[in-house]
Design a protein around this nucleic acid. Structure first.
Lengths: 207, 207, 207, 207
DNA sequence: GATGAATGAGTATTCATTCAT
DNA sequence: GATGAATGAATACTCATTCAT
């Protein structure tokens, strides 16, 4: 049986095991970014990690579990990066700007991670658990944005518009950034971030 | 042997053959929308088309070719629908509004088609040609939007902003619509379209 | 998808498909009898059937399904053989004798079948469905024997004893026959059958 | 390296080593009884023994060796239990009764052991040596029973019948007991034992 | 044109066994 | 003596594609 199979739950993973899992997750991100989810077989991932394919199954009970771990890991890293920036915005418009610019900068700094999670989220094989989790995450992000917009409207800072449509559109526009930045590596990231923030600032501000 | 294997090029396809190809493409769209790209095997598609799996290979040399044809067909249908609406806009802002609202309404009317092409575009197996073509399409759509924005700026109708960032964001926001409309079937489509058009109208207009 | 996957049920199997399934079942029986359940991999079975391993999966969705089909096939053959003999016994003792002797003769004539189902019933891998079905079959056979004994007791033909213990023991003794006949091929089958019937006749008769 | 790998033979095993081997054997019996032979991997056995999987290989050169040791251990325990009861029977019929009743009672008291050896005997993987040994054991048990019956016939205590068929049937009926007792835990063990002994007493006695 | 049985190359997964620690 | 991470060989299963009919 694999260490993964912790039915009862809290059994601690050894340090070395955590390290291996991290290494495998990193190799998975690298592999997906390089050759795409479709071709990211255990053989390919293991080759990049310098281990045997069987070892992946040893540490992750199912392919799905690995993919979900990639999701969790990247989202955790993103949350950490964004929460640092998001703190202490003085207005709803400033908060929106901070979110948008923070996300764009994160994308620029972690292209492989973004490519990996977007491919996993869109994947058609052995990624249902990861996709379901990402969907939940997505929905709760939308809900947070909606709430923010609604409050801003109630405070009179933002114009009247559908918070849902705005939330969906902001998130879509942000999530389009990594592909654009990857496709055009020469893009001025700061300028991109500023333009995107300006765009939505004009769209939400009152008057 | 197969009609597909035409190394010499443009030999016309017979009427009956076009009909079969169309039937297979339609069944493919239906199948992907119903059970997802991952499970959309030839056997499944053939069952829905009421034909045998081998016949698909007879008409499409490779799975990729079928998927690409689905892309081509859906995009053609979309272009036709959009060009009808887009004609005769009196201003750049009106043109943008027409594009956005047209696309949203198309999404609402052809959910299966949209699901199919998004799954193919994101697919991990046998869809590289289709994806490549979609990428080209995507890029040329972006270029058209950029041009439109640039002209509008030169005519003084639109404010100064990065046409590229705006194009990417508009397209991303539009492409997010189908998922949203599918996830929330009760959404008021016309309102959604109007809100989205308002959003970008505010973002591009001068003053 | 395989022909096996008939979720809706009654779709007829083609003649050629039934023939293949029969051929695969026969090869499976032969393989298990020859090298044991443990080593009866699809590769081995396919080799004996003169087909490719993938074809087995094509006709049987899961290994379990194949093993269960072997069970069903052999039991059906056995039932047919036994029902022919069992008809028209004039007394409970005669009926018991007919059952016992019929079974022993069947064993002698179909050694591979008996070995196969006993190995499948005892198998530890991918045979749970087959085992479950065999267990049901076993239990209902026991119930029939019990009923027969109980009736015989009520009619005063049989002595007083536990019908359950007798049923279990009769069945066990019968099922031990194939192994014995296989281990000692020179055994006089008719004598074996007669001895076994005598044994239980003495055990059940009144006075 | 490993104590097991003693090509030269009879070197004594240390006390601590015997203790470990015993612990592993006990854990193996428990594991097989609990989750079945198929799932009784070294990891599972080691978990129940509170040791690491590698240690099992350290003490048993091959999986087969472990399974054979389980067989040896259980049979030894059974022999000990039965020989205690079997001593001092005054007649062949009494001896047969003692054997049957002793075995049934042993089954009721050691269900896990019986389940384990029956699963190993029927196992499809890595149990050939154990099975071969068990087959020998089985055969010698049959031979002993045959001898006993033959002697009883010569002494005029038992009727004329095939000692071999009787031996095979007695053994089969006894070995069917554990499954029955496990399937119906409410069974009155003493009554079962008595009924079974009665059955065969009637079958063997003269007149 | 059309069938669908058959192939074969691909996949993840399992687990006894090894060995550096 | 003991660990448990790692290997590697084996498995069933999937399915686009082929081809005899």
């Amino acid at each position: 049986m694999q260490p993964e199979n912790q039915s009862s739950g809290q059994e601690r993973r050894s340090f070395i095991e955590e390290a291996r899992r991290g290494q495998i997750v990193a190799a998975t991100i690298e592999t997906i970014a390089e050759i795409g989810y479709a071709k990211a077989s255990f053989v390919q991932i293991a080759r990049r990690a310098g281990i045997s394919p069987g070892l992946i199954s040893y540490h992750f009970a199912k392919r799905e579990a690995l993919m979900k771990q990639v999701m969790l890991t990247v989202h955790a890293s993103m949350d950490q990066a964004l929460s640092a920036r998001g703190e202490g915005a003085e207005s709803y418009r400033a908060a929106l700007r901070a979110i948008i610019e923070g996300f764009v900068h994160y994308c620029a700094e972690h292209p492989a991670e973004l490519i990996a999670i977007s491919q996993i989220a869109a994947a058609s094989r052995d990624a249902e658990a990861a996709r379901a989790w990402a969907d939940d995450q997505h929905e709760s992000t939308l809900a947070e944005l909606e709430d923010m917009f609604r409050e801003g409207q109630e405070h009179g800072e933002l114009r009247t518009f559908s918070p849902r449509v705005m939330a969906v559109s902001v998130l879509a526009a942000m999530e389009a950034a990594p592909a654009e930045l990857t496709a055009r590596p020469d893009t001025d990231v700061a300028a991109y971030a500023r333009e995107l923030a300006d765009l939505f600032d004009l769209a939400v501000r009152r008057g």
